[in-house]
Design a protein around this nucleic acid. Structure first.
Lengths: 219, 219
DNA sequence: TCATAAATAATTGGCGCCAATCTGCAAGAA
DNA sequence: TTCTTGCAGATTGGCGCCAATTATTTATGA
């Protein structure tokens, strides 16, 4: 049984609304639901084996989180970000993440660094196997664990939200242009900077990481 | 016909879900629904003259936005923030708003300043009349208009969300201790700093504004 | 052939119903 | 008296149904 099946089996233990919400987020991040595609309620209900009522609730919540948009009497569709909006997302991430760097350095503990190192290695493994969905998950796990270091749940939530928004629809385009190797190297560079207590170094890596990401969309 | 009735009449034109959501937000901010109070579906449906279905949708979305919390088979209740969480909210606002100051200064235009000045005066009027709900609305309008100056919708949304969270349950406690006069003065000080192009001055006022607010909860 | 209009199919929106669950109260035993 | 247990009332959770709206296809006329 491969990783994907295990994940699915574990998750199937409770097929409630929040579970479906997470599945839809993964599906959007992994490329199963591309930007501008319509999310039909019946189709999702059948695909995930839940009732349409549950689907409606999940879609409603996702639209509140601005992950998808709602058009009355038309349905819900995956949101497409304009170039301007992507620039704003990147700028916002830059603002928040650079400000978090000194907090992370001041409040980090070894027990908090554990999941960071783990997710860092998992991302590398997923990349070597070319599993897009696993890359999506482990990449988020890495950045999420990193955000925890700052010891401020509000800031962590903000930056997590910004990242999820900005990475939408990046699934199919990620593996190309050798961007993955660069991401892996930069992840390790972040860990090293934190271990060394180098605030400026961490900020530099973060800035390059985000800038490189943004430039993917300029081409 | 007073202001409140006018607002109500205008809003009643369409009693849909998003309308109810806004009413509930206002109700929570203005003190109608205090922290820890349960929001019963039937009661809200009757109070606002909508069906329970609409109420459910609005509650679901509000809980996604973390304005309220959902306890299965118990219901939805207004979220109470712990002291630690308030500190984190203030710290997060400080981080984002201080970083936005130079952006606001660089991108401000006179047409964008118009609503800022207007809301600033409206807040003063509402305070002089002691109308808590109007103060809540105009204060938010002021800060919202201010956030628009930075020319980044993502950052504006983030800081608006943080402010709304942090000000929950502040309605009844606001008018006391002369905090209102201080808020009015600081609002005008922000406008003046922006007009003068004084970034450091703006950041200073913002910092004092937030610190004073946080200290209200320490006593 | 093309444009327009009517009819049909597909999808979403809203509501009422009933089961599942929790709270509060009352009755009984130690 | 005090704790436990069972019962009644109230509230929420989930689902099926049908109306409202939109998209698609078909029919009609110039």
């Amino acid at each position: 049984m491969d990783q994907a099946s295990v994940r699915q089996e574990t998750a199937r233990q409770e097929k409630d609304q929040s579970w479906l919400q997470e599945q839809l987020r993964i599906g959007m991040g992994g490329g199963r639901f591309p930007a501008d595609s319509w999310l039909r309620q019946d189709a999702l209900a059948e695909l995930y084996g839940v009732s349409r009522f549950v689907v409606r609730g999940a879609l409603e919540r996702l639209s509140e989180a601005e992950a998808i948009e709602h058009v009355p009497h038309r349905g819900y569709r995956v949101r497409r970000w304009s170039h301007q909006e992507r620039l704003e997302l990147t700028e916002a991430r830059l603002v928040v993440e650079l400000a978090m760097a000194p907090l992370m350095m001041a409040r980090r503990t070894e027990s908090l660094m554990e999941p960071v190192r783990q997710a860092c290695a998992q991302f590398e493994d997923a990349a070597s196997e070319g599993d897009g969905e696993a890359m999506f998950l482990s990449n988020h796990a890495f950045h999420r664990a990193l955000a925890v270091l700052a010891g401020n749940r509000q800031l962590a939530d903000q930056v997590n939200w910004l990242r999820e928004q900005g990475m939408r629809g990046a699934g199919p385009g990620w593996p190309k242009a050798g961007g993955v190797e660069r991401s892996i190297r930069e992840h390790y560079a972040m860990v090293e900077a934190i271990d060394a207590g180098d605030v400026l170094g961490l900020q530099g890596v973060v800035q390059r990481h985000l800038t490189a990401w943004q430039e993917r969309f300029d081409r």
